[in-house]
Structures are given as C-alpha cells and as structure tokens.
C-alpha cells in the first residue's frame, strides 16, 4: 500500500540535522526491529494480498494460477458482495454514530463528581477490557430465545417475549450493532473525558456567569473545545468498527445467509471455510485496503489540519 506517498508527513518538522558522531547507521539500527516486524507482518503481506487476488488457488493446494482481474470481475458481479458491502456501511455508520453521541453523554457522567465514581469508572471500562470474542459468546448465549435478554425485557415490564434475536434480520443486525456500540462507547467516553479535563474551569465559570445552563455549556463550550479529539476518536472508531471481526463472526457468523455479514467476516469465511477461495478472499481484502486507504487519508488530513489550527 503506497500510503506514504499520498499522506502528508505527520511528525514535527526537523529543523536541524545534528552532527551524528555515532553515525547515521546506528540510528537506523534503533528502528530496525520495528521496521522488520512491520515489514514482515504488514507491508509484505499487503503486497502478497494484491498478488494473491490476481490468482486462483484450488483449496489448500499451493498451486496458483494467474487469472488477472477475474476475481474482481466475479466479485463485483456477485450480488452477495454488494449486499455485504451495504451492510458494512450500515454497520459502521450506525455503530460509530451512536457511539459518538453516547460517548459524549457518558463522558459527562464520568466527569461529574459523585460518590462511587471510581467504581463507575471501573465498570465502564469492563467492555473495553474484555475480549470482544468472549463477550460476544456471552451475548450470543444471552440472546437465545429463552435467554436472559428476553427475561430482562419481561422484567422491565415490556411484555413476555421470546425473540430469537440472532435467528433472523432485522433483529440480528440490531443485536450485533447493539453489541458493537456496547463495546466501543467506554473507550470513546474515557478519551473524551481526558479532553474535557483539559478545558480550564474558568471557561465553564465564565459561561455560567453568562447564563449558560449545563446543557448549553455542553453544546456551546465543551463540544467546540474538544472537537479535535472528537474528530480523532470518531475517525479511529470508524476504522476500528469497519475492521471489526469478532462480534459478528462469533454472534451470527454472518448469518443467517450472509444477512449480517460485513466485509471482514465475509473475507474470512470466503478464505478459511467452504472451498477456501483464497483468490476471492484476497480480492475482498484489497477492496478493504482501498477503503482503509481512503479513510486514512481523511484521518491524517483531519488530524494534521486540526492540530495546526
């Protein structure tokens, strides 16, 4: 992925090149382990992905046949792919959208002083700290027709229900989106709180003297002042959620019949189950990479521009 050539440099600009008595090579030696690891696990495989996407491979045999763009042609002609693509957009936008709004609200609760706040903080961090693969298993279990989700709905007085949450859409889609939001709000809220703490008290006091209530201050003082962090957090949530694999893979496996699949799970099941279609899986990976590239340009641009305000 030729990322470096299209993204503006993000580090502080070097003014002076100091005389290096130890020699430049020794400096590069400091970077070598990291560079090797990144090259071996990220850079080279990206190139391999592109190469594999132009080939076809019979099951697990190492024999590869050059097919040019045939994998892409087949992929783009496949209605399932486009449905999964649309589902990916719905999944990403709804999870990130709700997470941002909810995160902002939760951040306000987290920031307030009240008894037992530390406990609240620990509880809030639980979803972030637990592996999504594990919590997804638990959610799947709780969402069975006779599971504790339905039981809780009854307890809340919303009537006796026995929904098979994961058996069909739209409820299965709603369920995975809910869990997606559940998993991404905590970190978002904690980051936003850190940003909110950096706003001087005096600004809030001034706004209060100007007659702004809590809500007005949240929207007209806090929000504009943390917009850079909000942008960074939202953009990185976007990438994280877009890439997210465990929740959907564990809860629904993309089913029923691809109806909750997103590109990430679709890729995995194409390449590692059924007829192990490595070529098509790689083509999907390339599509994801291109989308990520676009997002990273937006991300870096946004980050660089906003930081220089």
């Amino acid at each position: 992925m030729a990322v470096t050539s299209v993204t503006p440099a993000a580090g502080p600009r070097g003014g002076e090149r100091a005389r290096l008595p130890d020699g430049l090579w020794r400096l590069y030696a400091y970077l070598l382990p990291a560079a090797l690891l990144l090259a071996a696990v990220l850079a080279i495989p990206i190139v391999q992905t592109v190469w594999l996407s132009l080939h076809t491979q019979e099951g697990l045999s190492p024999e590869k046949t050059w097919v040019g763009l045939a994998n892409y042609r087949d992929l783009f002609a496949d209605g399932t792919f486009w449905r999964v693509f649309a589902q990916t957009v719905v999944w990403t936008v709804s999870v990130v959208g709700v997470t941002t709004v909810a995160g902002f609200a939760v951040a306000h609760v987290l920031q307030a002083r009240f008894r037992g706040r530390w406990l609240f903080r620990v509880v809030l961090m639980l979803p972030w700290a637990t592996s999504l693969a594990l919590s997804a298993v638990v959610w799947r279990f709780a969402m069975s027709p006779k599971g504790l989700v339905n039981e809780s709905i009854s307890l809340l007085g919303l009537g006796e229900v026995s929904v098979a949450w994961l058996a069909d859409v739209p409820q299965a889609a709603l369920a995975v989106i809910y869990v997606g939001i559940w998993g991404s709000v905590p970190f978002t809220a904690v980051m936003l709180v850190a940003a909110m703490r950096s706003i001087p008290d005096s600004i809030h006091e001034a706004a209060e003297l100007d007659g702004a209530g809590a809500l007005a201050r949240a929207f007209f003082v806090t929000l504009p002042m943390i917009r850079r962090v909000l942008l960074v957090v939202t953009l990185s949530n976007f990438v994280l959620v877009f890439n997210s694999f465990p929740i959907i893979y564990v809860m629904t496996g993309g089913g029923p019949v691809n109806k909750t699949d997103i590109l990430a799970t679709y890729l995995y099941r194409t390449g590692f189950s059924g007829d192990f279609d490595i070529g098509t899986a790689s083509a999907i990976a390339v599509v994801i990479l291109v989308l990520l590239l676009v997002m990273s340009i937006v991300y870096v641009r946004g980050l660089v521009n906003r930081t220089r305000v």
Binding site: A9, L42, I46, A264, F272
Partner: peptide, 19 residues
Amino acid sequence: FMTVVLVTQMLSPIVVIVP
C-alpha cells in the same frame, strides 16, 4: 516512518490474514 506508524494503526489482522 512517522506517517507509516500513523497509518498502519488502521490495519487490522483480518485484511492480511490470508497471506
């Protein structure tokens, strides 16, 4: 290198899992 560091944060294992 800094740009690579910033951008590679976006990669998740899933995209390169096949190779």
